[in-house]
C-alpha cells in the first residue's frame, strides 16, 4: 500500500513548549485513522504541520509526495481540512461561502449544490452563515473539506456539536470516501467518540505518541481485565470463595452483586465456575473493557513511565 502522509521524527516547539516530541508514523491510502488525545496533546499541531501552516522544528513531513510547507500548492488541492470549531464569515450565505472555496480549489461552481445536498444544507443554502446553528456550521465545514474529491482528509474533532443522526451520516460520508481510496485522519479527545469507526488508532499524550495500532491490537497490548458481574442469592453471598474458587480481585457491589476483574486467561475458568450446577448465581453480565478504559490505560502507563 502506498502511503499518502509520512511523518518522520517530527519535533515542534513553540518557545519553551514542546507541542510534538519526536513523532513518526505514516498513513496509507484507503484507511481511517483516529488521532486521540486530551486537549493540548498535539493533535491540532500535527494537523497544522501536515497542512504546512507551520514548519516542524526538526524532522520531515511528506504529504502526497510534497513537503507541505514548501509553498507548493499542488498537494493542497487534493487535501481537505476541517478545523476544530470551524467558523466562516457571517455575512455571506452558505452557497456563496462554498462557491468561494470551490474557486480557490479550481473546482467548478457546479460542484457546490451536490455537496450542499450531501450534507443536508440545501434548504439553508441561501441564508447567511451568521444565522446557522453550530451543527449547520459543522456541516458546511465538512462540505468545504469534501470539495475536489480529496485524497487526504484531515478532520479535527469533526463530530463535536453534531447530534447522533448527523454523526451517523457524517461517518457514512467518511466511510464512502475511504472506500474510494482516501486517507482519513480524524482527531478526537475521547476514543468513545469514534464508535469503533477507525481502523487504526494513534494515541497522543503531551506531544508523544503513546500507542499506535488497530483497536484489537491495542486491547491485546493493554491486557485489560474483562469485568464479570454476577447477581448472587443471599446464601451465596456469604461464602463466595467456596463456589467461585480462588479468584483475585473480586468485590461486592450494590448488595447482591459480585464483580470480578478477570484477565484474559482466567476469564473462561471464572465463567465456568459461576455457571456450574449449584452455583448461587441468578444472573450474569460480561463487560469487555470499554474504549475509555483502554484510552485511560495507555495514558496512565505513559505517565508512569516518565
Amino acid at each position: 500500500m502506498t502511503s499518502t502522509v509520512e511523518i518522520r521524527n517530527v519535533v515542534k516547539r513553540f518557545g519553551k513548549v514542546e507541542a510534538v516530541r519526536d513523532v513518526s508514523f505514516s498513513l496509507p491510502e484507503g484507511e481511517t485513522v483516529a488521532l486521540v488525545g486530551h486537549n493540548g496533546a498535539g493533535k491540532t499541531t500535527l494537523m497544522k504541520l501536515m497542512l504546512g501552516l507551520i514548519r516542524p522544528t526538526s524532522g520531515s513531513i511528506t504529504v502526497l509526495g510534497d513537503d507541505p510547507a514548501a509553498g507548493q500548492f499542488e498537494a493542497r488541492r487534493r487535501l481537505g481540512y476541517l478545523p476544530e470549531s470551524v467558523s466562516f464569515n457571517a455575512a455571506l450565505t452558505g452557497r456563496e461561502t462554498l462557491a468561494f472555496y470551490a474557486r480557490l480549489k479550481r473546482e467548478p461552481t457546479t460542484a457546490v449544490q451536490p455537496l450542499l445536498d450531501r450534507v443536508g444544507l440545501s434548504h439553508a443554502a441561501s441564508r447567511r452563515v451568521g444565522t446557522y446553528s453550530k451543527g449547520m456550521r459543522q456541516r458546511l465545514g465538512l462540505a468545504q473539506a469534501l470539495l475536489g474529491e480529496p485524497r487526504v482528509l484531515l478532520l479535527d474533532e469533526p463530530t463535536t456539536g453534531l447530534d447522533p443522526a448527523l454523526r451517523h451520516s457524517f461517518y457514512e460520508i467518511v466511510e464512502e470516501l475511504r472506500g474510494r481510496g482516501a486517507t482519513v485522519l480524524l482527531s478526537s479527545h475521547a476514543l468513545t467518540e469514534l464508535e469503533e469507526r477507525a481502523g487504526r488508532v494513534i494515541i497522543m499524550n503531551r506531544g508523544i505518541k503513546v500507542a499506535d495500532g488497530t483497536l484489537d491490537e491495542l486491547r491485546r497490548i493493554a491486557r485489560l481485565p474483562t469485568r464479570i458481574r454476577l447477581k448472587v442469592s443471599d446464601v451465596g453471598l456469604a461464602n463466595v470463595p467456596n463456589w467461585l474458587g480462588p479468584v483475585e480481585g473480586w468485590r461486592r457491589v450494590n448488595g447482591h452483586m459480585v464483580e470480578i476483574d478477570a484477565s484474559a486467561e482466567s476469564k473462561i475458568e471464572v465463567l465456568r465456575r459461576a455457571t456450574n450446577e449449584g452455583a448461587p448465581v441468578e444472573d450474569l453480565d460480561v463487560i469487555p473493557p470499554t474504549l475509555d478504559e483502554l484510552y485511560a490505560h495507555f495514558l496512565l502507563s505513559q505517565e508512569a513511565a516518565r
Binding site: F73, L79, P83, F88, N89, R106, Q144
Partner: peptide, 11 residues
C-alpha cells in the same frame, strides 16, 4: 475568528 486558518489551508 478562526477563518484565516481554513483559508490558508487552501492552495
Amino acid at each position: 475568528r478562526g477563518t484565516m486558518l481554513l483559508l490558508l489551508s487552501y492552495p
